[in-house]
């Protein structure tokens, strides 16, 4: 495994070195990331990058295929617009984690901030802790599994994203509804958690039976003059 120390290097230099490794499928351990922004963006390739500490904003943004492990926290916009690959944060994530992702898997092994998974199009987001205000806002597809609690306005104005919440939901966003969980959902939840989380973590998490499923009520999908009250509130 290649080693890279960020001290004294510009973000451009660090990212060039990471890209060189990833493009030939080599794994790289990045030391002293120092919570700096834009680390590991636009990585094309299948190698694994391990950040030995916290990263700043937009880490893993626009990536396609790589695996990023963060041994610390992540700032805003983690894995934004990821096409494919895996991002695992061992600590907490800031606002807009997994914003607009088109694929891949984001795993937050702590809490995530406001607007987690905003406008996500596909892919999977797992948060073992709690997620912040208005998570899942305008989600167009993909799935979000929140093992802990969800803050206010969960799933506001969603299209086809499906949110599963293991803890309490503070309140649902506009046009978000709780529906019955199916056997297929239970199997998906158990399989996803087993696949993406270490065994030591699983025993403290709810199993497939204990999740609530939140989807769009589809009332805001098409404008209906006779249902003006719903629109007035949503806007």
């Amino acid at each position: 495994m290649a080693k890279l120390n960020c001290n004294g290097q510009t973000i451009r230099e660090i990212n060039s070195s990471i890209r060189k490794c990833i493009s030939v499928g080599e794994s790289v351990a990045v030391e002293s990331p120092g919570a700096r922004h834009n680390l590991g963006v636009a990585l094309l390739g299948s190698g694994e990058v391990t950040f030995q500490g916290s990263v700043g904003y937009y880490c893993g943004g626009l990536m396609d295929g790589a695996t990023i492990r963060i041994r610390g926290n992540a700032g805003w916009g983690l894995a934004e617009s990821m096409l494919d690959g895996q991002v695992i944060v061992e600590g907490n994530a800031g606002n807009s984690a997994g914003a607009a992702i088109r694929g891949g898997t984001l795993v937050v092994q702590g809490d995530s901030g406001a607007r987690t998974g905003v406008s996500m199009k596909n892919g999977l987001i797992i948060v073992t802790g709690s997620c912040g205000y208005m998570s899942g806002f305008m989600g167009q597809g993909g799935k979000m599994i929140i093992c802990g609690d969800a803050a206010e306005a969960l799933g506001d104005s969603m299209y086809e994203t499906v949110c599963f919440v293991g803890g309490k939901i503070a309140d649902l966003g506009n046009d978000a509804i709780v529906v019955d969980i199916t056997n297929e959902d239970r199997a998906f939840l158990d399989a996803s958690l087993r696949k993406h989380l270490p065994n030591t973590m699983l025993k403290n998490l709810p199993n497939g039976d204990n999740f609530k499923k939140v989807v769009s009520g589809k009332k805001l999908w098409n404008f209906d003059k006779s249902d003006w009250k719903t629109w007035e509130q949503a806007l």
Partner: peptide
């Protein structure tokens, strides 16, 4: 440290 983003409100 355990560093966390403060929530809305």
């Amino acid at each position: 440290l355990n560093i966390r983003e403060a929530g809305a409100r």
